[in-house]
C-alpha cells in the first residue's frame, strides 16, 4: 500500500497556546473559577451571619483585609470580562426576526448592556449605596 497518511498530534495539555483565539477562549472559561470562588465566599458569609454577630464580624474583617479586597477586585475584573465576552457573542445565539430581516447584532449587544446597567442600578439603590 502506497498510502500512509500522516497524523499531526495535538498537544493535549497545551493546545490552547497555539493561537490567540484559543487563549482568549480559555481566559473566558477561566473567569468562571473566580466567579465560583466569589460565590463560595458569599455562601461562607451567609453561614457566618447565621452563626452570630461574632462570626459575622470575623468574616467582614476577612473580606475587608487587603488580600480580601484584592480578591474581590480580581473577581470583579473577571466577572466583567466574563459578561462582556458573553454579551458580545449573544447575537450568534439569538436571532430575533424583524420584518424580512433580523435585529442587528449591535442592537442586541447594546440591549444587554442596558439591562446590565439597570439591574446594577436597582441593586445599588436597594442596598442604599446610591
Amino acid at each position: 500500500m502506497s498510502r500512509n497518511p500522516y497524523v499531526r498530534e495535538v498537544p493535549r495539555t497545551t493546545w490552547y497556546m497555539r493561537n490567540r483565539r484559543y487563549i482568549r477562549y480559555m481566559l473566558r472559561e477561566v473567569t468562571c473559577v473566580f466567579i465560583g470562588l466569589y460565590a463560595a465566599s458569599l455562601t461562607v458569609g451567609l453561614v457566618r451571619l447565621a452563626q452570630g454577630p461574632g462570626e459575622w464580624a470575623v468574616y467582614v474583617n476577612g473580606i475587608s483585609s487587603p488580600s480580601g479586597l484584592l480578591f474581590s477586585l480580581l473577581a470583579l475584573g473577571f466577572a466583567c470580562y466574563h459578561s462582556i465576552s458573553w454579551f458580545n457573542v449573544t447575537p450568534k445565539a439569538m436571532r430575533i426576526p424583524r420584518g424580512d430581516d433580523f435585529v442587528p447584532g449591535p442592537a442586541i449587544i447594546s440591549a444587554h448592556y442596558i439591562i446590565w446597567g439597570v439591574v446594577s442600578l436597582v441593586f445599588l439603590l436597594m442596598m442604599g449605596v446610591l
Binding site: R21, Y22, Y25, E29, V89, K92, A93
Partner: peptide, 23 residues
C-alpha cells in the same frame, strides 16, 4: 461545541457555524 467561535471567524463565506450551533 464549547463555543470557542473560531469557526465563524475563519469562515470565508460568513456562514457563522458557531451561531447555528448555539441556536
Amino acid at each position: 461545541c464549547s463555543f470557542v467561535g473560531a469557526c465563524s471567524e475563519v469562515c470565508p463565506k460568513d456562514v457563522d457555524p458557531a451561531g447555528a450551533i448555539q441556536q
